[in-house]
Amino acid sequence: MVKITVSDKRNPIPQSLELSENIKITTWGAIKVNKADFFPSSFQIKSGEKVIYIDPVEVDGTDKADYIFLTHAHPDHLSLKDIHKIAGPETVVVCSKGVEKKLARHNFQLRKVKPGDMLDLGDLKCKAVEAYNTKPVFLWIKAHPKSSENVGYILTLSDQTVIYHAGDTDYLPTMRDIKNTDVALIPVGGDNLTMNVEEAAAMVNTLKPKMVVPMHYELKVSDDINKFKSLTAGEIQVKVLQ
């Protein structure tokens, strides 16, 4: 059983990126996954007066969510405790099919999506995109098989800022179709769980976002993050949050 707690290496001050006067991305920082200190895929986005969470795990904030986006059902991405903490009666929870199965008996406003689906939420547009492994963890077994229909999300905010959260994934051919991204939140160095450093850098150099934020890595592998930065094209801003 996977045990998730707050890491004692967590920065006591939440780390934020202010993209404009009205848009801010925040992370509460490191969690402990079993015994490993880990920077998660968990973010809050404030767009004007709207509050958006992606894969909230061990969040410290008390801001109620307008929208919660969940990529898949692994416990470092899906925390029922945190969803209950930030969800109100009007919160829309957008999720993949594996997550919907786990949340179906709870009283949430669920919107199930699969890769390729698009949602128009008025002040927020969402496209669900593929997120899966091409390489196995053991023999033929993959941590994130394509058949699970896990997703990443491309979010277009009210001012047309585009944020791409890749979820847990390898470098996929369909990523070449993702255009005009302002911020990409990308897993780095995940053994056979996600892209390794070289794959992540190659993906980012193809995608060409204005800014990239590495996620889903162990804190002890800081050399991986430095290598990722060195392999990323110079015009792409790399922001490391911890």
Score class of each variant (00 low, 15 high):
residue 118 M to N: 10
residue 176 R to G: 15
residue 8 D to Q: 12
residue 163 I to N: 03
residue 141 I to Q: 11
residue 37 D to W: 00
residue 10 R to V: 12
residue 113 V to Q: 01
residue 138 F to I: 15
residue 146 K to M: 12
residue 5 T to A: 13
residue 15 Q to W: 04
residue 220 K to P: 04
residue 13 I to D: 08
residue 182 D to I: 10
residue 225 I to R: 01
residue 213 V to R: 06
residue 56 P to Y: 01
residue 207 L to W: 07
residue 96 S to P: 00
residue 202 A to Q: 14
residue 187 P to N: 08
residue 60 D to P: 06
residue 237 Q to P: 03
residue 94 V to A: 07
residue 155 L to V: 01
residue 10 R to T: 11
residue 166 A to C: 13
residue 89 P to K: 14
residue 47 S to Q: 08
residue 228 F to V: 12
residue 12 P to T: 09
residue 92 V to Y: 04
residue 233 A to H: 14
residue 180 N to F: 05
residue 184 A to M: 11
residue 154 I to R: 00
residue 48 G to I: 03
residue 134 T to R: 14
residue 24 K to L: 07
residue 11 N to D: 14
residue 91 T to L: 10
residue 220 K to D: 13
residue 80 L to K: 06
residue 149 E to R: 12
residue 238 V to Q: 06
residue 233 A to I: 09
residue 38 F to V: 02
residue 6 V to W: 09
residue 118 M to L: 05
residue 120 D to S: 14
residue 15 Q to A: 10
residue 36 A to V: 14
residue 218 E to W: 10
residue 54 I to C: 12
residue 157 L to P: 01
residue 188 V to I: 10
residue 203 M to V: 10
residue 37 D to E: 09
residue 98 G to N: 15
residue 160 Q to S: 14
residue 9 K to F: 13
residue 159 D to S: 12
residue 69 F to E: 04
residue 233 A to C: 09
residue 20 S to D: 13
residue 116 G to Y: 08
residue 105 R to T: 15
residue 144 H to F: 15
residue 28 W to H: 15
residue 139 L to G: 06
residue 44 Q to S: 12
residue 142 K to P: 01
residue 239 K to L: 10
residue 158 S to D: 13
residue 192 N to V: 11
residue 14 P to R: 04
residue 17 L to P: 02
residue 214 P to L: 06
residue 64 K to G: 06
